[in-house]
Amino acid sequence: MNKSASITTGGTFRFGLLLLAMPLLLWLFLLVILPHVDLFLVSMRERISYGKYEFSLINYIEFFAEPLYWNTYVRTAVMSIFATALTLIIGFPVSYYIAKVMRGKGKNVLFLMCLIPFWVSELVRTFGWMILLRESGVISNFLQWAGLADGPVEMLYNDAAIMVGLVYTSMLFMVVPLVSVLDSLDDSLIEAGYDLGGNTFTVTRDIVIPHAMPGIASGCIVVFMLTLGNYLTPNLLGGKDSLWFTEQIYTQFITRFNWESGSAFGFLLLILSSVIVWVGLKLSKQTLSETVG
């Protein structure tokens, strides 16, 4: 039994490896590659009449010809980049505080506090924001009570509300990689930076940020992807002017029954996110393997 189980030939070894990798390969093929191929094929056809389709680029042409789609596409990308930057700007000091300033129990408590909002679903979190920001909501009432506002204040249904929701939703995904990368920064490097004449700004710029770069890059990639692909938050908090590209895709698929252009939009979103992540990695001089690995 032992003899036959031990790996004796290359052939057996390879077969065993294949068997081990099977779940991963199946997962990749059935759930990632196959749907994308199908999506691509659907995006490349045009509906001629009931149940009749032909190969065509019309869905892509339509995207470029219709300013609405374009605008939404660019707006989504710009807002996502902005939300990612904002998340980084807020998340970095928070992470630094958790990783380097706090000690012992307080550290875990703070970290847990970042995690708590994620115990409820995104929908509930977004509704929470709606309760706070709406005209008859908590903040509006507080401002009136405090005499800072004369009448009800509507803070919902605008880009700022979308931003707040997106940053809040993404914060954890920025803080986790940042905390782990900052944790790995030897305190004595920071002290050496000060000792040799650096101030807070230069030490952060020359030592902390270069060290944290892989964490920053991976946090930004995750947050950017999440933001770009977010549907609920822009939709609920943005109201009548939300204009998020995923909404377009949803509309095409679900309310227009236009799977062809929905697929094309989906593909364009995939291209957009890939290009922006690629550019971001180039600019920050990081590689994907470094960042993810």
Binding site: D186, S188, L189, E191, A192, G193, D195, L196, D206, I207, P210, H211
Partner: peptide
């Protein structure tokens, strides 16, 4: 100026 126990040379 200080020479640290693990030297603390900046790896970046």
């Amino acid at each position: 100026n200080m020479v640290f126990q693990h030297l603390a040379l900046f790896p970046m």
